[in-house]
Nucleic acid binder design. Structure first.
Lengths: 331, 331
DNA sequence: AGTGTTATTGCAACCGATCTCAGCAACCGA
DNA sequence: TCGGTTGCTGAGATCGGTTGCAATAACACT
């Protein structure tokens, strides 16, 4: 269990270490009997290759960084969860990098990962990704971004159709009789947040109603402020779309503290589909993003780009998840 | 930016590569002028050492695995957050390992980390930790567990005083006039969960009241079932202690769905002090664990054990966090 | 001046793989 | 029978550092 290197196995199997190496990493280059014999011997010894030595020589490791602004945010947590799984399945190990939104930190992570010969990285941004900055790094060309990227087609991305999602929310609310629908922006800075907001503005205008942006702040307190704003209005909307579930939670909480009940007094719908939402009070109606798919797809895109160099931009479909925070408009 | 190895720096500085190596990793062994010169040259070239090569030779890397059952659980997410920070500060990188409670998986992670020469690991368990199993691995003796460990003093641990926490909750509730206080167990299986439950049982008995365990299940639905049980009772308690915040959320949510309001109809107090609780509806009163401290301390303990071999068992003090889910008993 | 220490630095083996190149045997067709 | 392939394996350099040991320089002391 202590020091079994490739040489030990080689000796035990009576072959040269290069043959052992091939038996593992390029099976077709070794006579099948030899290979099986080697594998058997290795198995018996309980030998596995040193990923470190491999990485050093190959200049490619199996460590892949997942860069998120805040793992405490359940959206990123769910993402991290499915990504660790997806990574595992493919023999990678996820390295969690939490930036707290500090670009300097993510730079630091990039350098570190580059030094570790990470084959690629995944970035879930809190601010717009600066692709120019990315390219300063060796694997800048091998990064998948979980957000839309402006004016640079060379970075693979995976996102959810924001417009479709907002449309789903709006339609749902309309079908319940709501016509005056407010909006609280999410953690702004990302294209995704921007897109959702734009979609809201555009679709509301299209339906002939007046858009009511309760808050467009960029931090976690947007929800709280949005609710405050709502409470001060003379003629508040009867429903609120929150740009993401966390904001929706904050809105409902703040409303609740002022004695307003959801959905009886106001309907609130979120955007994310966090598992947590099912245990909120009330259970949150929301637009679900297929987070699990996003994780898997991000890794696939990265591998694909790594392989044939192709760059894809995947846009997934959101779906409506009706739970308990929206209800028929009561006059 | 491409291939700067230690030799490049050595040449540029006009010294042997071993001197460069020392300049970085054993400064006192190099004449200070030489060292500064080398460092300056390296700096100018933008050189940093390859952690891979270092790890390979030293048989010690800076990668440390954080093994958690579920990163989606905000408790573990908060833990992960503070730990990445603590790790960063000390020059380590956290590798996130999500087991989903599957022991086979955590075994897999251990082998992987062992192969990566991780200097130690941190385990935040969902089930009781099998220290015997741990010791099968090379760094089995270098693991810090964030839970109490039964009958094995050789593993450093960091925990929060469960009894004290439950006492805080009970006292708070008593001071509000509640005498009939129910309990919903948390994600059982850990010693921590067990300890909290035992403390509840013992302290309740001591105060002369009847313990009412609404649910002692081990999964995330304990809260929901606890609430159901509560609703079926002829003479339900007036307050509920939930073994952790997530369970408290579920309890409140389930109660809410049946038309019961917190804290007006029932008071509910959690245990964890998640940031999320502040945005719950209503904001959750809870017993706060110093999660940030736990993360830092876990790493300190690990380093300490790694250094002088000493094994500590740190028990931290919880504190009461009064928010909005508990209120005076109204007759 | 001669000898013993101590501080610095160079040398070269080593960590555990990968990979190019060369060697050798078997096989193929003319 | 012989040159030309093809298939498989061994040698040895290499990836980017670390480290024990030897060599040299510098300094202290009798």
């Amino acid at each position: 269990m202590s020091d079994l290197s490739i040489d030990v196995v080689a000796k035990a199997a009576g072959v040269h270490r290069s043959t052992v190496s091939r038996a593992f990493s390029r099976p077709e280059a070794v006579k099948s009997e030899t290979r099986e014999h080697i594998l058997r011997v290795a198995e018996g010894l309980g030998y596995t290759m040193s990923p470190l030595a491999q990485a050093l020589r190959r200049k490619t490791s199996t460590i892949i960084p997942l860069i998120v602004p805040d793992i405490t945010n359940p959206f990123f947590a769910e993402l991290a969860k499915t990504m660790t799984q997806a990574a595992d399945e493919r023999g990678y190990q996820l390295m969690l990098c939490v930036t707290n939104g500090d670009p300097a930190k993510s730079d630091g992570y990039f350098t570190a990962m580059q030094a570790m010969y990470a084959p690629f990285g995944i970035v879930a941004p809190s601010t717009k990704v600066d692709t120019e900055a990315l390219k300063r790094f060796a694997f800048g060309h091998k990064v998948v971004v979980i957000d839309r990227v402006e004016g640079d087609e060379s970075v693979p991305t995976v996102t959810v159709d924001s417009r479709k999602g907002i449309m789903l929310a709006l339609d749902h609310l309309h079908s319940l009789g709501h016509t005056s629908i407010g909006y609280v922006s999410g953690i702004a800075g990302t294209h995704t947040a921007q897109d959702r907001m734009d979609a809201y503005l555009e679709l509301t205008a299209q339906s002939g109603s007046l858009p009511v942006v309760l808050d467009s702040g960029s931090d976690l307190d947007a929800g709280t402020r949005g609710a405050e704003h709502f409470l001060e209005m003379d003629n508040p909307p009867t429903a609120i779309i929150a740009a993401n579930d966390m904001v929706a939670f904050a809105v409902i909480s703040a409303l609740g503290r002022s004695g307003l009940r959801v959905p009886d007094d106001v309907s609130v719908i979120g955007f994310d589909g966090l598992a947590l939402g099912a245990r909120f009070n009330p259970p949150l109606t929301t637009v679900r993003q297929p987070i699990a798919d996003m994780g898997h797809i991000a890794i696939e895109l990265a591998e694909k780009q790594n392989g044939d160099g192709s760059v894809d931009h995947i846009v997934l479909e959101p779906e409506l998840l009706v739970r308990g925070s929206t209800s028929e408009l009561r006059k």
